[in-house]
Simulated scan of single mutants.
Amino acid sequence: MRGGAQAQASVSGTSLKRGLARQMRRSGGKAGAWVGDPVTGQTLFTRGGSKPIQIASNMKVFTTATALATLGPTEQFETRLVATGPLADGTVQGDLVLVGGGDPSLTSQGLGRLADQAGAKGLDRITGRLLFDESIFDGVRSVPQKGISGGPFDGLGRLSGLSYESGRSADPARSAATAMAEILRERGVTVSKEAGPGLAPATPAPEAVIGEVTSSSLAALARSTNVFSINFYAEMLLKDIAAAERGVGTTAGGAALVRAFATQAGASLKTQNGSGLSRSDAASPRSVGALLTHMLSQEETVREAFLSSLAVAGGSGTLARRMRGTAAQGNCIGKTGTLSGVSALSGYCEVAPDRFVAFSILMKKVDIGRAHVAQDRMVALIARYNP
């Protein structure tokens, strides 16, 4: 990760503490910060570091860390077309079920690939209907959002085990099935226009699977979630964790598993959901730092997937325009978080080749612009630390 802006003069531990304290005083509002060296276990700086503060989208680092460590970076989520009757002479004698696997990224392109596979198997007629099966998740479309203005789907979309186009429609699973039927008809397949709910066998016979598409790897999905702070992806991944570990995807089940993982990391976390869209989602800077430190000790593929999921200062995602021209550019990675009056920035600075310092800066009752200035100056200073 080393690179980016021209190297600047290094700072000692004493200068680091002095400079960080100065920026904390200037930030206004209520703030906490923690900076630590995962190699030595030394706390380099703390100010209000043990007090829980609303973490906003820093919640996503807990969700994605749990997903990567639990499911693995190569995990993919499948969407299938399953016939309830035999396919003979181009005809399915029965219904065709579109089965969701918790993929947050399914679009019409994926449905088109399913139609290609159906065509390759000679499908030209379905005697029954095109059904949809979203039973991998519960039927709850929204998540708890205490203290957040707007409707339950603002900035989120509707959740479903058969998600489609980021949950933009009122009934994503039905919309996916309707779109699937339309694509099949466009390709000459005779199928009813009426779509409805249904259940496919949990383990269908191989010959019953007419088509199957998979999402990108979990590592890639986690990167999209964190780099661009996609609430919908975070909430879908939370339910995916629960589905894998408990048999059905629920927000409460996923949140419990994330809290358990945080506890294993030495962190204390209060959460209602997976994205941070709740003022009840809270942790101390020290707890966020504990999670970040824990992720550096994971096996290599998990560790690298998590590091790669964070935005690069001055380079990508929500940090693309921040810290440019400073020592942090290209040398620090992190996750932002923003609610009204709340601003967070947590992550790592690479202060020597493959030598990271972890940090978490959480602020509330602040002006967001002023908070960003203080955070950026603090991270730029951390990047100059000489261990």
Rank of each mutant, 00 (worst) to 15 (best):
R47L: 02
V366I: 05
R168K: 12
G249D: 14
E186F: 12
P104I: 11
G247T: 04
L131Y: 00
G112L: 10
S57W: 00
G253H: 08
P38Q: 03
D367R: 12
E75Y: 10
E165G: 08
S108F: 09
I241V: 13
S229R: 03
A200D: 08
P387I: 03
G161S: 07
P285S: 00
F153W: 14
S149N: 15
A371M: 10
K17D: 08
K121E: 13
G48Y: 02
D124E: 08
S284P: 13
D116M: 02
A327T: 03
G337Q: 01
T178G: 15
S308A: 15
W34I: 05
A344Y: 02
V11R: 14
G341M: 01
L362M: 07
S10T: 11
S268C: 11
S284D: 11
L123H: 12
S163Y: 07
G167I: 05
T70A: 14
P104S: 07
G315D: 15
Q8A: 08
L130F: 09
A220R: 09
S175V: 05
S360A: 15
S308D: 12
A179K: 13
R26I: 05
T293C: 00
P204V: 06
R25W: 01
Q329T: 02
R185C: 05
Q264M: 01
L20W: 02
A344D: 05
S278C: 09
S343N: 05
R141W: 10
V39Q: 06
A313G: 15
A67L: 06
T336A: 01
A262M: 09
T178Q: 15
L291T: 05
N226Q: 01
L237S: 10
Q375C: 04
L20Y: 06
K30Y: 10
V351M: 04
R129D: 00
G72S: 07
A170V: 11
A327G: 02
T14L: 08
V82P: 01
T326P: 02
L44G: 05
A120N: 12
E207D: 14
R125P: 03
G3S: 11
I368L: 13
S215C: 12
I55S: 01
T70H: 12
R223K: 15
Y348H: 13
R80E: 07
Q93A: 11
G249V: 10
A222Y: 00
